[in-house]
């Protein structure tokens, strides 16, 4: 382990101090783990009866099908939201002002609203107007409306990040606006957006669990059901969390790797979109690497 701390190697005294603090903090961490375990044990949460259901194939399969439903809603939401996002980005960049206003209003309004409110609206308000959506459709509809706005901003940022010379050169060759967009600008911008899109997919996967309010049969709901049936809510929800972490961690890693590779290849800066938590962390981390 290299001991480089904020840009400098440690001297002998500092190394001694670090060793002492290492021991103390390791003891503290062990103590915290011990207290948690003792707490679990005294409340009889470590007994085999509480955990055994989670090793049975029927329960595992029940949860995995839930994960499949989660992925299904996220994937459907992502694909459709991409279509809406492209339309909104083109709208906000359009040469005609009224088109820009409409797209701008859509993006600014739906980006500012909690997704939960949209899911709730799709599930419980639309039926009052005669529109009955299944739980799956409600979740996907809300994901599309919300992420259409977010992806619209990502796409717009991607297009704007491209050097102006590219579109100027295309116009100089006599291309029309749409030819320039589809043949020159979008193919290049799309590459830059890949990492941002993958991290948005992680957000979508996490957001699917809000489908709870319209009883969409996904992983979190199934974990709750398991917990009620076997009287082990703590263990069942922890199991669901582990599944979410496994999938999302893998996706986050892929996003980060794409980001790093891209920056090496195109020297492009990461995209940052207001109000999107996952993206900002990725973007700033990447900028930080640039500054080094």
């Amino acid at each position: 382990m290299t001991a480089i701390v904020l840009g400098d190697a440690l001297g002998p005294r500092a190394r001694r101090r670090v060793r002492i603090i290492t021991v103390i903090s390791a003891v503290l961490v062990a103590a915290v783990v011990g207290v948690v375990m003792a707490r679990l044990a005294t409340h009889e949460q470590l007994t085999a009866a509480k955990w055994r259901p989670l090793t049975q194939w029927t329960v595992v399969k029940f949860l995995l099908v839930g994960l499949g439903q989660t992925v299904k809603a996220a994937a459907a939401g992502m694909v459709l939201a991409t279509v809406v996002g492209v339309a909104m980005a083109l709208g906000r960049l359009a040469p005609r002002a009224p088109v820009r206003w409409v797209a701008g209003a859509y993006v600014e309004f739906f980006r500012a609203i909690p997704l939960l409110l949209l899911i709730f609206f799709a599930g419980f308000a639309l039926p009052k107007y005669g529109i009955h959506l299944s739980p799956f459709e409600s979740v996907v509809a809300a994901l599309v409306v919300y992420n259409g706005a977010v992806l619209g901003e990502i796409f717009r940022a991607g297009v704007l990040s491209l050097d102006r010379g590219q579109s100027e050169a295309a116009y100089a060759l006599g291309m029309t606006y749409w030819q320039t967009m589809f043949l020159v600008v979008i193919p290049q911008a799309a590459r830059r957006m890949v990492p941002a899109i993958v991290s948005q997919l992680v957000t979508l996967l996490k957001d699917t669990s809000l489908g709870l309010v319209v009883s969409y049969d996904e992983l979190l709901r199934r974990a709750e059901n398991t917990g009620e049936y076997y009287r082990n809510p703590l263990q069942s929800i922890v199991a669901a969390a582990v599944l979410y972490i496994a999938v999302n961690f893998t996706l986050s890693r892929i996003a980060r790797r794409l980001e790093v590779r891209q920056r090496r290849r195109y020297k492009a800066t990461a995209l940052s979109v207001a109000g999107v938590e996952d993206l900002t962390a990725v973007a700033v981390a990447a900028d930080a690497q640039d500054a080094r």
Binding site: L205, K206, L210, L220, S252
Partner: peptide, 9 residues
């Protein structure tokens, strides 16, 4: 751990 777990979970 926290970043990869959904908030509702």
């Amino acid at each position: 751990t926290i970043r990869n777990t959904p908030l509702p979970v």
